[in-house]
Design a protein around this nucleic acid. Structure first.
Lengths: 136, 136
DNA sequence: GTTGCTATGCAATGGTATTGCATTTTTTTA
DNA sequence: TAAAAAAATGCAATACCATTGCATAGCAAC
Protein backbone atom coordinates (compact mmCIF):
# COMPACT_ATOMS: atom_id res chain seq x y z
CA UNK A 1 0.00 0.00 0.00
CA UNK A 2 1.68 3.20 -1.10
CA UNK A 3 1.40 6.73 0.28
CA UNK A 4 -1.54 7.74 -1.89
CA UNK A 5 -3.50 4.62 -1.04
CA UNK A 6 -2.86 5.39 2.61
CA UNK A 7 -4.27 8.86 2.27
CA UNK A 8 -7.36 7.62 0.49
CA UNK A 9 -7.87 5.01 3.17
CA UNK A 10 -7.44 7.56 5.97
CA UNK A 11 -9.95 9.88 4.37
CA UNK A 12 -12.46 7.11 3.74
CA UNK A 13 -12.31 7.33 -0.01
CA UNK A 14 -12.16 4.19 -2.04
CA UNK A 15 -8.93 3.57 -3.83
CA UNK A 16 -9.38 3.27 -7.58
CA UNK A 17 -6.94 3.42 -10.45
CA UNK A 18 -8.34 6.72 -11.63
CA UNK A 19 -8.12 8.35 -8.21
CA UNK A 20 -4.55 7.24 -7.71
CA UNK A 21 -3.64 8.64 -11.10
CA UNK A 22 -5.27 11.96 -10.25
CA UNK A 23 -3.41 12.16 -6.95
CA UNK A 24 -0.18 11.34 -8.69
CA UNK A 25 -0.76 14.05 -11.27
CA UNK A 26 -1.65 16.63 -8.66
CA UNK A 27 1.42 15.77 -6.62
CA UNK A 28 3.66 16.47 -9.59
CA UNK A 29 2.37 20.01 -10.06
CA UNK A 30 4.19 23.09 -8.87
CA UNK A 31 0.95 25.03 -8.98
CA UNK A 32 -2.75 24.60 -8.37
CA UNK A 33 -4.44 23.44 -11.55
CA UNK A 34 -7.86 23.63 -13.11
CA UNK A 35 -10.08 20.81 -14.27
CA UNK A 36 -9.07 21.72 -17.78
CA UNK A 37 -5.37 21.43 -16.90
CA UNK A 38 -5.98 18.10 -15.24
CA UNK A 39 -7.81 16.83 -18.29
CA UNK A 40 -4.91 17.86 -20.49
CA UNK A 41 -2.55 15.78 -18.36
CA UNK A 42 -4.35 12.63 -19.43
CA UNK A 43 -4.81 11.23 -22.87
CA UNK A 44 -8.10 9.45 -22.61
CA UNK A 45 -9.77 10.49 -19.40
CA UNK A 46 -13.35 11.60 -19.14
CA UNK A 47 -13.79 15.19 -18.05
CA UNK A 48 -16.77 14.38 -15.85
CA UNK A 49 -15.02 11.61 -14.03
CA UNK A 50 -12.13 13.95 -13.29
CA UNK A 51 -14.60 16.60 -12.18
CA UNK A 52 -16.28 14.23 -9.76
CA UNK A 53 -12.96 12.93 -8.54
CA UNK A 54 -11.91 16.47 -7.64
CA UNK A 55 -15.24 17.13 -5.94
CA UNK A 56 -14.95 13.96 -3.90
CA UNK A 57 -11.38 14.80 -2.96
CA UNK A 58 -12.45 18.27 -1.91
CA UNK A 59 -15.31 17.01 0.24
CA UNK A 60 -13.05 14.54 1.98
CA UNK A 61 -10.23 16.99 2.57
CA UNK A 62 -7.74 15.51 0.15
CA UNK A 63 -7.52 18.60 -2.04
CA UNK A 64 -8.48 22.21 -1.49
CA UNK A 65 -9.92 24.49 -4.11
CA UNK A 66 -9.04 28.08 -4.92
CA UNK A 67 -11.23 30.64 -6.61
CA UNK A 68 -8.53 32.74 -8.21
CA UNK A 69 -10.80 34.95 -10.24
CA UNK A 70 -9.89 33.44 -13.59
CA UNK A 71 -13.28 31.77 -13.85
CA UNK A 72 -11.84 28.30 -13.47
CA UNK A 73 -11.51 26.83 -9.99
CA UNK A 74 -8.02 25.57 -9.20
CA UNK A 75 -7.20 22.52 -7.10
CA UNK A 76 -4.15 21.40 -5.15
CA UNK A 77 -3.35 18.56 -2.79
CA UNK A 78 -3.61 19.38 0.88
CA UNK A 79 -0.52 19.24 3.03
CA UNK A 80 -0.23 16.34 5.45
CA UNK A 81 -2.16 17.11 8.61
CA UNK A 82 -4.33 19.75 6.97
CA UNK A 83 -7.90 19.82 8.25
CA UNK A 84 -8.85 22.67 5.92
CA UNK A 85 -9.86 24.78 8.91
CA UNK A 86 -9.11 28.51 8.70
CA UNK A 87 -5.97 28.04 10.79
CA UNK A 88 -4.62 25.46 8.36
CA UNK A 89 -5.23 27.57 5.29
CA UNK A 90 -2.53 29.33 3.40
CA UNK A 91 -2.34 32.22 1.00
CA UNK A 92 -2.61 31.65 -2.72
CA UNK A 93 -0.82 33.79 -5.23
CA UNK A 94 -1.95 34.36 -8.78
CA UNK A 95 0.76 35.67 -11.10
CA UNK A 96 -0.52 38.13 -13.68
CA UNK A 97 2.43 37.29 -15.92
CA UNK A 98 2.66 33.50 -16.03
CA UNK A 99 -1.02 33.19 -15.10
CA UNK A 100 -0.37 30.41 -12.65
CA UNK A 101 -1.76 30.01 -9.14
CA UNK A 102 0.72 29.10 -6.41
CA UNK A 103 0.11 27.65 -2.98
CA UNK A 104 2.21 29.62 -0.52
CA UNK A 105 2.01 26.83 2.01
CA UNK A 106 4.25 28.59 4.49
CA UNK A 107 2.25 31.81 4.45
CA UNK A 108 -0.72 31.11 6.65
CA UNK A 109 -3.77 33.32 6.63
CA UNK A 110 -3.28 36.10 9.18
CA UNK A 111 -5.91 36.82 11.82
CA UNK A 112 -8.71 38.68 10.12
CA UNK A 113 -10.25 40.47 13.07
CA UNK A 114 -13.83 40.01 11.94
CA UNK A 115 -16.52 42.15 13.56
CA UNK A 116 -18.50 40.64 16.41
CA UNK A 117 -21.13 38.11 15.41
CA UNK A 118 -19.41 36.80 12.30
CA UNK A 119 -18.61 33.09 12.50
CA UNK A 120 -15.68 32.12 10.35
CA UNK A 121 -15.76 28.77 8.56
CA UNK A 122 -13.60 29.10 5.46
CA UNK A 123 -11.25 31.63 3.91
CA UNK A 124 -10.34 32.15 0.28
CA UNK A 125 -7.41 34.50 0.02
CA UNK A 126 -5.83 35.16 -3.34
CA UNK A 127 -3.05 37.69 -3.65
CA UNK A 128 -2.34 38.79 -7.20
CA UNK A 129 0.72 40.36 -8.74
CA UNK A 130 4.01 39.05 -10.10
CA UNK A 131 5.56 35.87 -8.75
CA UNK A 132 9.21 35.47 -7.83
CA UNK A 133 9.97 33.54 -11.01
CA UNK A 134 8.55 36.29 -13.22
CA UNK A 135 9.85 39.31 -11.33
CA UNK A 136 13.52 39.02 -12.31
CA UNK B 1 -24.71 68.41 -10.09
CA UNK B 2 -25.37 65.75 -7.48
CA UNK B 3 -22.95 63.50 -5.64
CA UNK B 4 -23.03 60.70 -8.22
CA UNK B 5 -22.41 63.07 -11.09
CA UNK B 6 -19.47 64.44 -9.18
CA UNK B 7 -17.97 61.01 -8.77
CA UNK B 8 -18.39 60.19 -12.45
CA UNK B 9 -16.80 63.51 -13.38
CA UNK B 10 -13.86 62.95 -11.02
CA UNK B 11 -13.27 59.50 -12.43
CA UNK B 12 -13.51 60.71 -16.03
CA UNK B 13 -16.60 58.73 -16.87
CA UNK B 14 -19.38 60.37 -18.79
CA UNK B 15 -22.56 60.92 -16.91
CA UNK B 16 -25.52 59.18 -18.47
CA UNK B 17 -28.98 58.37 -17.17
CA UNK B 18 -28.19 54.66 -17.12
CA UNK B 19 -24.97 55.10 -15.18
CA UNK B 20 -26.57 57.32 -12.60
CA UNK B 21 -29.33 54.77 -12.13
CA UNK B 22 -26.79 52.01 -11.66
CA UNK B 23 -24.87 54.04 -9.10
CA UNK B 24 -28.07 54.82 -7.29
CA UNK B 25 -29.06 51.17 -7.22
CA UNK B 26 -25.65 50.08 -5.98
CA UNK B 27 -25.70 52.75 -3.27
CA UNK B 28 -28.96 51.39 -1.91
CA UNK B 29 -27.61 47.87 -1.40
CA UNK B 30 -26.50 46.51 1.94
CA UNK B 31 -24.44 43.88 0.13
CA UNK B 32 -22.34 43.42 -2.96
CA UNK B 33 -24.55 42.28 -5.83
CA UNK B 34 -24.16 40.31 -9.01
CA UNK B 35 -24.96 41.36 -12.53
CA UNK B 36 -28.04 39.18 -12.26
CA UNK B 37 -29.15 40.97 -9.09
CA UNK B 38 -28.57 44.33 -10.72
CA UNK B 39 -30.63 43.30 -13.71
CA UNK B 40 -33.46 42.26 -11.41
CA UNK B 41 -33.48 45.71 -9.86
CA UNK B 42 -34.53 47.21 -13.18
CA UNK B 43 -37.61 46.50 -15.20
CA UNK B 44 -36.44 47.09 -18.72
CA UNK B 45 -32.68 47.34 -18.71
CA UNK B 46 -30.43 45.45 -21.08
CA UNK B 47 -28.19 42.94 -19.38
CA UNK B 48 -25.23 43.75 -21.62
CA UNK B 49 -25.45 47.45 -20.98
CA UNK B 50 -25.44 46.78 -17.26
CA UNK B 51 -22.50 44.43 -17.72
CA UNK B 52 -20.51 47.05 -19.56
CA UNK B 53 -21.47 49.72 -17.09
CA UNK B 54 -20.08 47.61 -14.27
CA UNK B 55 -16.91 46.89 -16.25
CA UNK B 56 -16.40 50.57 -16.95
CA UNK B 57 -17.02 51.43 -13.31
CA UNK B 58 -14.54 48.80 -12.23
CA UNK B 59 -11.84 50.02 -14.61
CA UNK B 60 -12.27 53.57 -13.43
CA UNK B 61 -12.29 52.73 -9.74
CA UNK B 62 -15.94 53.49 -9.08
CA UNK B 63 -16.82 49.98 -8.03
CA UNK B 64 -14.75 47.00 -6.92
CA UNK B 65 -15.51 43.41 -7.75
CA UNK B 66 -15.44 40.35 -5.52
CA UNK B 67 -15.00 36.75 -6.56
CA UNK B 68 -16.88 35.10 -3.77
CA UNK B 69 -16.78 31.60 -5.14
CA UNK B 70 -20.44 31.44 -6.09
CA UNK B 71 -19.55 31.67 -9.76
CA UNK B 72 -21.06 35.11 -10.17
CA UNK B 73 -18.85 38.13 -9.62
CA UNK B 74 -20.23 40.60 -7.10
CA UNK B 75 -19.87 44.38 -7.30
CA UNK B 76 -20.07 47.17 -4.76
CA UNK B 77 -19.42 50.89 -4.80
CA UNK B 78 -16.00 51.95 -3.58
CA UNK B 79 -15.71 54.05 -0.47
CA UNK B 80 -14.80 57.71 -0.93
CA UNK B 81 -11.03 58.04 -1.27
CA UNK B 82 -10.54 54.41 -2.27
CA UNK B 83 -7.77 53.85 -4.79
CA UNK B 84 -8.33 50.10 -4.90
CA UNK B 85 -4.72 49.51 -3.85
CA UNK B 86 -4.05 46.61 -1.47
CA UNK B 87 -3.96 49.02 1.48
CA UNK B 88 -7.41 50.34 0.66
CA UNK B 89 -8.96 46.92 0.31
CA UNK B 90 -11.23 45.39 2.87
CA UNK B 91 -12.41 41.93 3.73
CA UNK B 92 -15.52 40.48 2.16
CA UNK B 93 -17.73 38.06 3.96
CA UNK B 94 -19.94 35.51 2.29
CA UNK B 95 -22.70 34.12 4.49
CA UNK B 96 -23.43 30.46 3.88
CA UNK B 97 -26.94 30.93 5.27
CA UNK B 98 -28.35 34.03 3.61
CA UNK B 99 -25.96 33.63 0.67
CA UNK B 100 -25.12 37.31 0.57
CA UNK B 101 -21.73 38.93 0.25
CA UNK B 102 -20.93 41.77 2.63
CA UNK B 103 -18.27 44.45 2.40
CA UNK B 104 -16.61 44.71 5.80
CA UNK B 105 -15.31 48.15 5.01
CA UNK B 106 -13.78 48.63 8.42
CA UNK B 107 -11.86 45.37 8.32
CA UNK B 108 -8.87 46.10 6.14
CA UNK B 109 -6.73 43.35 4.69
CA UNK B 110 -3.98 42.49 7.17
CA UNK B 111 -0.35 42.38 6.14
CA UNK B 112 0.18 39.13 4.25
CA UNK B 113 3.91 38.64 4.72
CA UNK B 114 4.52 37.32 1.23
CA UNK B 115 7.78 35.51 0.52
CA UNK B 116 10.60 37.50 -1.03
CA UNK B 117 10.24 38.24 -4.70
CA UNK B 118 6.46 38.33 -4.82
CA UNK B 119 5.10 41.69 -5.93
CA UNK B 120 1.63 42.37 -4.62
CA UNK B 121 -0.84 44.20 -6.84
CA UNK B 122 -4.31 43.13 -5.79
CA UNK B 123 -5.92 41.05 -3.08
CA UNK B 124 -9.19 39.14 -3.12
CA UNK B 125 -10.07 38.01 0.37
CA UNK B 126 -13.38 36.32 1.02
CA UNK B 127 -14.15 34.98 4.46
CA UNK B 128 -17.05 32.55 4.59
CA UNK B 129 -19.26 31.47 7.41
CA UNK B 130 -22.36 32.88 9.10
CA UNK B 131 -22.98 36.61 9.23
CA UNK B 132 -24.07 38.49 12.32
CA UNK B 133 -27.67 38.73 11.09
CA UNK B 134 -27.95 34.97 10.63
CA UNK B 135 -26.05 33.84 13.72
CA UNK B 136 -28.67 34.74 16.32
C1' DG C 1 -25.93 71.20 -38.82
C1' DT C 2 -22.46 67.92 -39.65
C1' DT C 3 -18.94 64.90 -38.16
C1' DG C 4 -17.16 61.81 -34.94
C1' DC C 5 -16.88 59.45 -30.70
C1' DT C 6 -19.21 57.02 -27.04
C1' DA C 7 -22.99 54.53 -25.11
C1' DT C 8 -26.65 51.43 -25.77
C1' DG C 9 -29.22 47.38 -27.40
C1' DC C 10 -29.74 42.97 -29.67
C1' DA C 11 -27.77 38.71 -31.24
C1' DA C 12 -24.55 35.25 -30.95
C1' DT C 13 -20.81 32.66 -28.87
C1' DG C 14 -17.54 30.46 -25.67
C1' DG C 15 -16.37 28.42 -21.40
C1' DT C 16 -17.05 26.36 -16.86
C1' DA C 17 -19.94 23.94 -13.78
C1' DT C 18 -23.39 20.57 -13.05
C1' DT C 19 -26.92 16.90 -13.44
C1' DG C 20 -29.34 12.55 -15.44
C1' DC C 21 -28.94 8.13 -16.71
C1' DA C 22 -26.99 3.82 -18.35
C1' DT C 23 -23.11 0.82 -17.63
C1' DT C 24 -19.25 -1.03 -15.39
C1' DT C 25 -16.67 -2.03 -11.34
C1' DT C 26 -16.20 -2.91 -6.59
C1' DT C 27 -17.94 -4.28 -2.16
C1' DT C 28 -21.08 -6.68 0.72
C1' DT C 29 -23.93 -10.41 1.97
C1' DA C 30 -26.13 -14.74 1.68
C1' DT D 1 -18.65 -18.49 -4.75
C1' DA D 2 -22.69 -16.34 -6.56
C1' DA D 3 -26.05 -12.91 -6.10
C1' DA D 4 -27.31 -8.39 -4.53
C1' DA D 5 -26.18 -3.81 -3.37
C1' DA D 6 -23.49 0.20 -3.62
C1' DA D 7 -20.35 3.08 -5.69
C1' DA D 8 -17.61 4.77 -9.63
C1' DT D 9 -17.29 5.70 -14.40
C1' DG D 10 -18.57 7.35 -19.04
C1' DC D 11 -21.54 9.66 -22.27
C1' DA D 12 -25.08 13.04 -23.20
C1' DA D 13 -27.37 17.02 -22.19
C1' DT D 14 -28.09 21.28 -19.83
C1' DA D 15 -27.67 25.63 -17.23
C1' DC D 16 -25.40 29.64 -16.19
C1' DC D 17 -22.07 33.33 -16.40
C1' DA D 18 -18.93 36.04 -19.13
C1' DT D 19 -17.78 38.15 -23.33
C1' DT D 20 -17.62 39.87 -28.13
C1' DG D 21 -19.53 41.64 -32.80
C1' DC D 22 -22.21 44.66 -34.98
C1' DA D 23 -25.88 47.98 -35.80
C1' DT D 24 -28.13 51.97 -33.91
C1' DA D 25 -28.92 55.90 -30.98
C1' DG D 26 -27.25 59.74 -28.30
C1' DC D 27 -24.10 63.22 -27.04
C1' DA D 28 -20.10 66.44 -28.00
C1' DA D 29 -17.12 69.19 -30.62
C1' DC D 30 -16.32 71.82 -34.52
Amino acid sequence: MNAFENILHEKHVRSTAMRLLVMDTLAKQQTAISLHDLEAAFEHADRITLYRTLKTFEEKGIVHSIEDGTGATKYALCEPGCQCSPQDLHIHFYCNKCEKTYCLSKSKIPDLGLPKGYQLQEVNLVAKGVCNRCSD
